[in-house]
Amino acid sequence: MTPDLPTIWHWLDEVPDPEIPVISVVDLGIVRDVAWQGDTLEVAVTPTYSGCPATSVIAMDIETALYDRGIRNVRIKTQIAPPWTTDWLSDKGRAKLADYGIAPPSPAGGPDTCPRCGGTHLTRISQFGSTPCKAHWRCDDCLEPFDYFKCI
């Protein structure tokens, strides 16, 4: 029996992002489309940053997860238009990021509050952080550094 698309989306929502494993690839907004083409499942994936080294790992993780669920023919299609935006992060994903200690993206161009103590006196240390999608900030209330998910 061919699994229906909502079931497949649910399975994909259990595939963690390899760099930030608390959120799924669906939370991240990089799975753009899932469709059956005959007996092949085509999954359209968009990269976050064009040079993100996690992209090929994500494609492999998606294929493996679907294979484990019994889907034998999977085709991962890279789709670059429209370009990925942090607007596609799910609300669930944003909440999980904050719980994990990464301030979620904010259109204001910087984090609202410290993900550790909730402090609001924040200083940007570097526009870039431990992965292409993050910047490095510090909370001047608790003095802890933290990652901020860049808003693009």
């Binding site: 990269p47 940053y49 064009s50 040079g51 993100c52 240390i125 292409p132 490095h136």
Partner: peptide
């Protein structure tokens, strides 16, 4: 260190664009 990371990340973006 912060500048090192910033430079490496910028380089990574550029190499990603190169692939395309």
């Amino acid at each position: 260190l912060e500048e090192d990371i910033a430079l490496a990340n910028s380089a990574l973006d550029l190499i990603g664009q190169t692939q395309m």
